[in-house]
Every structure is written in structure tokens, then in C-alpha cells.
Design a protein around this nucleic acid. Structure first.
Length: 155
DNA sequence: GCCAACGTTGGC
DNA sequence: GCCAACGTTGGC
């Protein structure tokens, strides 16, 4: 069982969108490190901290809820679509380049755990998302850190 | 909107 | 394989 943090811009695809859709294929990630995590390390039922980047005054950057892996990674269909902004000319059906899991809504946090909350909490020191310049959109999270953030949303 | 940090591209 | 130039991410 692994734990993850996945970023999305709220006005692009938010936790509320996931709540409405119940599940979605996590398409469009075009970073090799993130791909390798999704393709090689994500297991069924792994839990995900759903993070909104690019926050605003009223909706600050931070963790807004929890999702889980409900299907292991498969080829990302958008790489085969010539009209998609995610089209990948090197990809063939036999040799896909990009992969994505299906994720499902678990819950929306009562109170979002903002990035500044995360940076302030000593027991979360070392967490990747709080590192300066950490742009990776799919990150591993330790079980301990996952539990701490989950508990912080109750307060 | 700004800009630092990072990843990718492509010439050599 | 190196590295400069470029494009993107994401916090502020």
C-alpha cells in the first residue's frame, strides 16, 4: 500500500469535479518521473492526497481531499489523439509512452490543509510538496505524513 | 503578473 | 555528452 500526492489546478480539475464524476482517468501528465510513479509504483487502492495548485486568496493552495487508485495505469489515450494538446507523435498503440491510472473520489476535506499549514507543521518536515521548487505533479507521500494531513483537516 | 526553479530540446 | 536556450510550473 502506497500513498501519493497529486496536483491539479483547481480551475482545471478540482476535487469538486472529481466528486461529481466519481472517477476519472488521470490523463495529461507529461513528465517522466511522474509517469514512472504512475506506471510502476501505483497499486490498486493506494490513497491520494488531492492537491490544488495555483490557489487564490479564498481558495489557497493545499490539500482539498482524498482519492484512491481504482484501476492500475493504462496507456493515456490522449497521446494517440492528433487533435489533443497531449498528442505524442512517438507513441504507437504497441509502444505507448504515457500511462495513467483511474482515480476515484473518496472524500473532500472539511477544512483544506493549506501549503502554509503544511510548512508550519513540524511533524511534516521533509515532505516533498513543501520543498522549494518542487514541481513534480505526482509525488510519493509517507503513510505517517498522509495520516497527519488527514487528521489536520478535522481541526 | 512576476520570476525562480526545473525539465526538455537541440546544436555542437 | 555537454550545455545554452527555451518553455512550463507554481508560489507569491
Amino acid at each position: 500500500m502506497n500513498y501519493w500526492l497529486m496536483k491539479s489546478e483547481a480551475d482545471c480539475y478540482s476535487i469538486d469535479d472529481l466528486k461529481r464524476d466519481k472517477k476519472t482517468s488521470w490523463t495529461g501528465v507529461r513528465n517522466y518521473q511522474a509517469r514512472n510513479f504512475m506506471r510502476d509504483n501505483m497499486q490498486l487502492d493506494d490513497l491520494i492526497l488531492f492537491y490544488h495548485s495555483g490557489g487564490t486568496k479564498t481558495e489557497p493552495t493545499g490539500v482539498y481531499g482524498v482519492a484512491k487508485i481504482t484501476s492500475k495505469s493504462k496507456p493515456d489515450e490522449t497521446q494517440f489523439d492528433k487533435k489533443s494538446e497531449y498528442f505524442e507523435p512517438r507513441a504507437t498503440k504497441e509502444n505507448a509512452v504515457w500511462f495513467c491510472p483511474e482515480i476515484s473520489f473518496v472524500k473532500k476535506f472539511k477544512n483544506p490543509v493549506t501549503l502554509s499549514d503544511i510548512k508550519f507543521e513540524n511533524s511534516l518536515s521533509g515532505i516533498m510538496v513543501a520543498q522549494k521548487g518542487s514541481r513534480l505533479s505526482v509525488q510519493p507521500v509517507s503513510e505517517k505524513h498522509f495520516r497527519i494531513i488527514e487528521e489536520m483537516n478535522q481541526k
